[in-house]
Nucleic acid binder design. Structure first.
Lengths: 106, 106
DNA sequence: CCTATATTTGGTAGTTATGTCAAATAACCA
DNA sequence: TGGTTATTTGACATAACTACCAAATATAGG
């Protein structure tokens, strides 16, 4: 594997890793429906404020979400909507797995 | 977040996590071009046989690849081709990030 | 059957990720 | 200014991941 190729894979893996956590994935999907402030996530997810804030910062760092401070609150929004099409593929994997376990696929 | 929703997110995150490693991501992309045996990856990646084997087993476990033993060798192939469209989106994120850091986007 | 080759599995040390608490910031309001 | 709320940051214990070595397994060929 060439060095440049390696770097490219590392960069892409970094983005994927940001989404590869149940809480962060769920947040990203919520943000696809519109912006949310940190406090909304804290309430719904029943997690510590700091935990939610850190998850959002991982998504932000990866370039998946953007933040916007308005007054005392910080609103997060999805920067790259294609993330969702992308979820359709993941769901396809899951369905394929389910079919396989049910013996419907070789 | 409801329990069912939580489970769904966990299942999807599990698939994403399997891809969220530079080596595994690169392997998946290679497999999109056709099957490969473990030994081919070992040679190109310059990693221990056991390391490569374990990475492939993570991909298999997630339902992303399938394995086929033929003689002494095991050939892996991509089960879900949509993974690649999905990479286009990740690349879009990267480009978006690059543009942002260059000050081309707010 | 014995050997060599291809691959997987178990053990393990080092690294990285996660979640919580406590403290630090920031902004609004009295 | 001082207090209150919203959020981030730092420190830290715990858990999960990664890569390697060594050992186990499987298969083809002699």
């Amino acid at each position: 594997m060439m060095a440049m190729e390696k770097e490219k894979s590392a960069a892409k893996a970094h983005v994927l890793k940001a989404l590869a956590h149940p809480v962060r994935l769920w947040m990203a999907e919520q943000l696809a429906q519109g912006e949310r402030c940190v406090c909304e996530f804290v309430e719904v997810l029943d997690l510590d404020f700091s935990t939610v804030s850190k998850h959002l910062s991982v998504l932000k760092q990866a370039g998946i979400v953007a933040d916007d401070k308005r007054g005392k609150q910080v609103f997060y929004s999805l920067r790259v909507p294609c993330i969702l099409n992308f979820m359709h593929c993941v769901e396809e994997v899951l369905h394929s797995n389910a079919a396989k376990h049910a013996g419907m696929v070789k």
